[in-house]
Amino acid sequence: MSNEHAHAPAHDDDEHNPHLAHHFDTMGQQTAAAKLGMWLFLATEILMFSGLFLAYFILRMFYPEMVLEAHEYLSKWAGGINTVVLLTSSYTMALGVRSIQLGDVKKLRLMLVLTILCGCIFMVVKYFEYSAKFEHGMLPGKFYSAHLHGYEIDGLPHIFFGVYFMMTGLHGIHVAIGLAIMLWMFVRAGRGEFNAKNYVAIENTGLYWHLVDLIWIFLFPLLYLVK
């Protein structure tokens, strides 16, 4: 959505601005529409994730001891490092938006690279976490087999790991999509498509990325920390 209306590079903001799609009257209208669209999209994302959070809370309510025991098997450190990484990436993304607000395309591209880098680190850490879980048979639902690997978790830990994989998996998919979008923004910035007066695509990318961060801010304590 963030890229709905960007076409060719341009420099000036008169009515024939090539960034302006035919059905809008002004750039202001176009930008406002794109941003409102993005916020509504974020609303749908929040509601979608809310279903998983609810599943988590209900699981806690049904089987409190099991959740507490099972969550001990998640690595606090891996989660913690990823939190710091993701927060940092949000910071660099915000700075990227700031750079283009000031018209600094070079710095924008730098910030995008840094953000992408953080995103990649996040994914790598996730990869190691996931492989450890796979190895120990801590898998969702009927694939759960940790007891065959010598881990005795009382109760129904297969549900916990089901929810764990659903939440972090869906979040991970969002991270991956975010990385792809940022890469694309990086390319477009290189083509000179953005300037201090036309950067709503960057802004929307940022909003999306911050949302991914927001969700992690809740995932992290709930899955890894809370007793």
Partner: peptide, 12 residues
């Protein structure tokens, strides 16, 4: 499904 499935094994 035992210990044999899941992909985690071979991979690791």
């Amino acid at each position: 499904h035992g210990g044999g499935h899941g992909g985690g094994h071979g991979e690791a």
